[in-house]
Design a binder for these strands. Structure first.
Lengths: 371, 371
DNA sequence: CCGTATTTGTTCGTATGTATT
DNA sequence: CAATACATACGAACAAATACG
């Protein structure tokens, strides 16, 4: 009995309202479709007609549906979207950290020049948060979305929302990464496979052969950099050892990789270099190695990725891959403007792949002459 | 009978709704006043409580009134532009540089939690750009503006735009600084006078007495930090020498202060410390001093301001003033939410002054024992 | 055009739950 | 604790617009 009461917190009209809203957003109920009549809903949900009406009145107020006396209730031609709002949404995983401020700045430069404003959202790299953002944005007056997908390694759970965007002719551009099975969508990203390959090859050429890898597992960038890392090893005839690779999730960023590399180091697991997913993690790796009694680069070389401001700290300049930050933002914004002007059926290439370039620092040693 | 039917067009809930609306608009019911309870209305209008609730729900939806569980129904602080866009504009001088990403993140945290979105604009610290931003924003659906004024030292040239905001009941909150003659507006800023005073006093206590100052001349923060600097000198009986102060404009940031301090240094103008407007400029000053053959802190001490990530670079940790970045953003966002909820005539204090605090680094030497 | 069924719109009555004073 | 006030829920009835044979 008390158990049941706790569960029963869900209000009937809220439940019904959200059920219907879900059906509308998911596309089960399309624009112009007739909803079941109040009596039918009342029967099928086992609630009173009053309760049904309460739920419907909320949706009507929010603009999802409209009622016609004597005819029925219908799904709105969602929504009186202002087609000339001059707003473009920018959705990133994080706001203030790392390279994002500069990417956003690049987007802003181009869009402001053309008279657009940015609506900024961030997801904390959570898919549910991303879905919430998109739902919110579908309610707003926007002309397009530039989005860095959250957990892009995993299959996108809310394709329906992207479909909704397409239905409404709201163009979107992926940056940094792209969900599986959405490779045909407009996107601006780096060739991460090649980046991982280049930086690993760089280490091999400097005489390293026990190269540990630390990669982020929940975005497509991490997957691709890892593939490049594997390719470079195999090309050089170094067998790939899965135990040498540390995968981490964003959520554990503060703890996990540090500890893994620390334990690997103090347990004397042989390594002469560490390829890192990005500069941020490289700094943690260096910290862990130092704490374990190793010197970088004298004992172990470490590489970063992105060449962010973090690549240059405490006199240590990480060897890294150049991330064009602002430039990437500008390219994404320009692609967006083209999509708005020429419609979504853009003739030219909609996929921009930025070729990586190595920038050498002092975080790696040449071990060829040491042998 | 037909006669009666025509007259009967007046629906009871519409009648009641319009009655109440009239009373609100005429001022019979003032903002914050409690309406009669649903039961009282039901009695006095001889309608059912359902009907009363229907009437009230319309008024509530339109924003005229709000209901509080267990307390009663109250008259709103009429009326926020009728708009329910859930957008709040954030206008800063810069986007990606320095402390701004973290300030914006703080704002975002609070606003996202409350279901708002940020429209981001930046002015490049140009007044004309700021005016253009405000004009653009007046065309958009926004519920408020959080704005860092550009060139806040100078009298605001586009007061008319701020007046427009007030006419439209769009609340605005200043952050970082505030235009002259607008001190009564809502604002969140640091006590820059005290900050300048504290950090200068710190140097004096460490035995410095030839303290050069480098201040930004085009915002109110620079003016106030300079005043604090003067106050500390005079308190210590050190006469103020205007030739010892370098003023610079934002536009010249990259060139001017570097050259001034460089020339001051190579011309052997005596100095044992430099108080800098912020960490950014402090790094340039240190560069200039190094290039002129001086060592920091051995020959000359240097202080920063804001304790940004720049305060800690190349093994040098600037002595600086703590800027609460995210916290400041959060406070501004919370103040904004209060203004939206309670109307512009907020009872409580609308001006938040954050007290500065020194954070000691290794960029200053104690010269008391050197004499 | 009429009549009937369906569907939304409006109103009344009642009961129970929950927050505030 | 009791009284008050809003919140949710159900049932019933009639009105008005619409669809359809």
């Amino acid at each position: 009995m008390p158990n049941q009461e706790i569960v029963q917190k869900e209000l009937k009209y809220v439940k019904l309202m959200e059920d219907l809203k879900e059906k509308i957003l998911s596309g089960t109920l399309k624009a112009g479709d007739k909803l079941p009549s109040e009596n039918e809903l009342s029967m099928s949900y086992q609630v009173s007609r009053q309760t049904v009406r309460k739920a419907l009145s909320i949706l009507e107020n929010a603009g999802y549906i409209y009622a016609e006396h004597g005819r029925g209730t219908f799904c709105s031609e969602l929504v009186h979207h202002n087609r000339n709002s001059r707003n473009i949404a920018v959705v990133t995983t994080y706001l203030s950290d790392y390279i994002f401020p500069r990417v956003i700045k690049g987007i802003d430069t181009v869009l402001t020049r053309e008279g657009y404003s940015i609506i900024l959202k961030n997801t904390g790299n959570s898919r549910s948060q991303e879905a919430r953002c998109l739902e919110e944005l579908l309610q707003k007056d926007i002309e397009g979305i530039i989005i860095e997908p959250s957990k892009s390694q995993i299959y996108c759970r809310h394709m329906n929302l992207y479909q909704k965007l397409e239905e409404y002719n709201i163009p979107y551009v992926f940056i940094q990464g792209c969900f599986a099975r959405m490779n045909d969508r407009p996107q601006v990203l780096m060739n991460d496979y090649k980046g991982g390959y280049l930086i690993t090859k760089y280490l091999i050429e400097k005489g390293h052969n026990k190269i540990t890898g630390v990669f982020k597992s929940d975005d497509i960038q991490g997957q691709n950099r890892h593939k490049g890392y594997v390719a470079a090893l195999q090309e050089a005839g170094i067998s790939y050892d899965p135990d040498r690779v540390i995968w981490y999730y964003t959520e554990d960023r503060k703890v996990h990789p540090y500890e893994s590399i620390y334990h690997m180091a103090i347990s004397r697991y042989p390594m002469d270099a560490v390829v890192c997913y990005n500069d941020q993690i490289a700094m943690k790796v260096i910290q862990a190695l130092n704490d374990a009694g190793y010197k970088v680069p004298e004992d172990i070389s470490v590489t970063g990725y992105d060449n962010s401001y973090m690549a240059n700290i405490n006199g240590m300049k990480l060897t890294s891959i150049i991330h064009p930050q602002e430039k990437l933002g500008e390219m994404a914004a320009e692609l967006m403007l083209k999509l708005i002007q020429n419609g979504i059926e853009l003739k030219e290439e909609k996929k921009i792949l930025i070729e990586p370039e190595i920038i050498e620092g002092n975080s790696c040693m040449d071990r060829k002459n040491n042998l």
